[in-house]
Computed example of a mutant assay.
Amino acid sequence: MLSSCGPYLRLLSCSFILFLLFKSNHAKRDLKSACTTCQQITDNFNKGFERTAKQNFGGGNTAWEERKLSKYETSEIRLMEILEHLCESSSFECNRMVEEHEEHFETWWFKKKTKHPDLHKWFCIETIKVCCPKGTFGPDCNTCIGGSERPCHGNGACDGDGTRGGNGKCSCDHAYKGEFCLDCVDGYFNEVRNDTFSLCTECHRSCKTCTGATNEDCDECKEGWEDQGACVDVNECTQEPSPCKEDQYCLNSEGSYSCKACDKACAGCSGPGSDECQACAEGYQDVEGSCTDVDECSQSEPACPKEHQECVNNKGSFSCICSSGYEEKDGECIQQNDPAEESEEPQATTEPHGEL
């Protein structure tokens, strides 16, 4: 009977383990979130404390009220006015935490404030224990890697820093890597390094990895550079065949190159402008080493042979248009009718009547 239930029990066991892992991860997130909420509450409390610093009971006889009802400065009324503005109405977690621990605020306000002026430390860290001191993490406020003064040796962020959550692992800043954030990523080298301090400095732009700041200190060159005792730029534009298309010229840059469009006067080129053409494009001709436009309209042979046409020159080409007073119909220029003539109509005349 038990053997037949084996696969089912294993499935239940796996599902239960997954549930526990999910619950554990969710709890870790909640611990971080709870500290963030508590920090927000104490920040808003301090703002409210400053906001109400110069207020009073607001009655007509303030001196009498303070003498009989205690001073506004330390009154429960002032405390309530501060507590009312700690949370946004939409923040469920914030409002729940304030409501759940309201008596702690009263205790601090009336009994602990003088001896423990840091509300965040007293309330969030020491009393409800949702936060830890800076540089520590987790349920027991363990010290972050690198020490609480310089978590991750000053080169990264400690997971859960200042909260009761997290695992204390370092997320290294840009340029740093490793468990302790003391090693350098590719493209950087250790300018200073010991067991507790590391300064990573960027390599020369030609280096993929390096031991110093110049192109002579490269361990390996980046793509687009080659090792000649030092990493030097590869001029891709001198390679055969050219890396660019026929209607483009190659422009070299450090570690790379780009392809630029030739001037429209060129059929192939070695650089920008009409004086760098390898040959002239149709409609252009070489004049003293530069490709210039051919004016087809000034040639001995008429470019527009049809009757009543005029030639208009364009860059690299020309067009034929009908002369003034003519319009194009079926490929021919036909004289336009005079609108005035078309509108003229014979006038009606009336014979005069004879006298009776």
Rank of each mutant, 00 (worst) to 15 (best):
C304F: 02
S253K: 09
S253M: 12
I17V: 11
R78S: 07
E288R: 13
L9T: 10
Y326H: 05
C181D: 00
N252E: 00
L199Y: 12
L69Y: 07
Y326D: 06
Q239N: 01
H153W: 06
E66D: 13
D338A: 00
S75N: 02
W108G: 04
L21Y: 10
E106I: 15
E355F: 10
H116N: 12
D227G: 12
I128A: 09
N313C: 05
E240P: 00
C144G: 03
S298P: 06
T196S: 00
C152V: 11
E73D: 13
E216D: 14
G160Y: 00
G268K: 05
C304H: 01
H353K: 14
N46L: 08
K222F: 14
R205S: 06
R193T: 03
C237K: 08
S75M: 03
A63V: 14
N25L: 09
N155W: 01
C259W: 02
S323A: 07
E88G: 08
G60K: 15
H101L: 13
D263S: 07
D263G: 06
I77R: 09
L2Q: 09
D233G: 01
E100T: 09
Q309G: 05
N61P: 06
G138C: 06
D293L: 05
H26T: 15
T42Y: 02
C38G: 04
N190G: 09
P272F: 03
A340S: 15
N252G: 04
S270I: 11
D30T: 12
N190I: 10
I77S: 09
N44C: 12
T201W: 01
K177D: 05
S3H: 12
V185G: 05
T107S: 15
R205Y: 09
Q228H: 12
K23W: 15
G187W: 05
E216H: 13
G325E: 03
A157V: 15
E191P: 12
G6R: 11
E332K: 15
H204P: 06
T127R: 13
A265R: 03
C181H: 00
E307G: 04
C184Y: 02
L18E: 12
C38Q: 02
F22R: 11
K329M: 05
K169R: 15
S4M: 14
E296L: 02
S4Q: 14
Y284G: 00
T127M: 12
